[in-house]
Write a protein that binds this DNA or RNA. Structure first.
Lengths: 215, 215
DNA sequence: AGAAGGCGGAGGAATTTTCTCCGCTTCTGG
DNA sequence: CCAGAAGCGGAGAAAATTCCTCCGCCTTCT
């Protein structure tokens, strides 16, 4: 594969990831094209239809997730810290997009099942280790973990997204979800976010609200 | 106002709330119309443009949020339980819609500022009480609370939404976020969610994925 | 340097979204 | 219960969006 083709492929997949997270699995492919900064022809040549794009995106993400889970396990002897590390890595990888998109526009074939199984096994290992070490609230299941990850690591809607341009808020809130808003004062992760900052984007009286960042 | 007009107004506002939460603040008003089960004429007569609808929706929601905060404070002597009760009530009221939509398509006028101030004061009271009682992790601010509420109580994307048709998962995850996934075994709220359930909606190999519920 | 292959964008067809108009139904005051 | 006022739903025109192809030019590899 030629170098420029590979570059385009990567840009399209990355853009698709963000766009599907922000606008849902039916987001127009034109939006992906604009975000990726490529021409429509480039997208439609490589991915004949939406499903082809989605399939490659999901496969790619699941593989990287599996790798992240295995790396986290290897790098952290403490099972809870390993799980925590994985959760943060999953957010960086935009795990949400994989799931959103997997469930919507995809015929799940055997190859996909195999890739998915690999991810599930790896993550379940992390979870079981943390549970057996007594570092996980009893009754918390794999589904809870995954859904909380999806919920917390999705981009904030609309103009709120600007609050977390660099993603640090996602990591703060992941830590909060892990440790609990109500919890022992063993140090809060990051710094407190003021409400004023949240509503700052709402503009002042009489002023038009600054719209979302136009693409 | 005639009884049927009031009924239509309520149905439209409720529908708009759900639709804006699910599809973002630019969701087509036709989707609101379909969800509300009224004719387009009915919507456009009462709300000449998108802003009119959004304005009434936001004002209505903020007022109900303020009321919920005051009720929670009155009903629960324990500051933490009061905060917890409010958070759950806010999720039921779809607080997320107010914020999503407030930030996007609205010129914030003085009336709105006043209503919003009322809400902020009421919620800050709850938060301060919980903090002073030592029931809140230090460093957790109003913004964290609001954003975690938005994140957790937004509907899950796409087909995942079906997992939480009755909203019980939102409440479970709000409790988890409050108490922390990693936490003392003082009883997990609700029952554990299996990963199998999460991916069940993905269909079996070779089968087309059941699409989202068509409206 | 030449050839193979990829790139971006113009643009047409199809779909979606917006919003109006009007005949029929529902409500309310008397 | 009735008459008139008010509201309702839907057909459908106009505008905007989205999908996707074709083609002339540019990049990459040998």
């Amino acid at each position: 594969m030629r170098a420029d083709a590979e570059r385009s492929r990567r840009r399209i997949l990355d853009a698709a990831c963000e766009v599907f997270l922000e606008r849902g699995p039916d987001a127009p492919l034109d939006a992906v094209v604009r975000r990726a900064g490529v021409g429509p022809g480039t997208l439609y040549r490589r991915f004949p239809d939406r499903e082809a794009l989605v399939r490659e995106l999901v496969t790619d993400l699941l593989a990287r997730l599996t790798e992240a889970a295995e790396q986290a396990r290897a790098a952290e002897p403490d099972p809870y810290l390993a799980l925590r590390r994985f959760v943060h890595a999953a957010a960086d990888l935009r795990m949400g997009a994989a799931i959103v998109v997997l469930l919507e526009h995809l015929v799940v074939d055997e190859e996909l099942v195999a890739v998915r199984r690999g991810t599930v096994v790896a993550v379940e290992g992390l979870l079981r280790a943390a549970r057996e070490a007594g570092r996980l609230r009893p009754g918390v299941g794999m589904g809870d973990l995954v859904l909380l990850c999806v919920r917390v690591s999705r981009p904030l809607p609309g103009a709120l997204a600007a609050l977390d341009a660099d993603g640090s808020l996602v990591h703060r809130h992941l830590d909060l979800a892990l440790a609990g808003l109500a919890g022992e004062p063993d140090g809060p992760p990051g710094r407190a976010l003021g409400f004023d900052e949240v509503i700052a984007a709402a503009g002042r009286p009489g002023e038009p609200v600054p719209g979302r960042v136009t693409e």
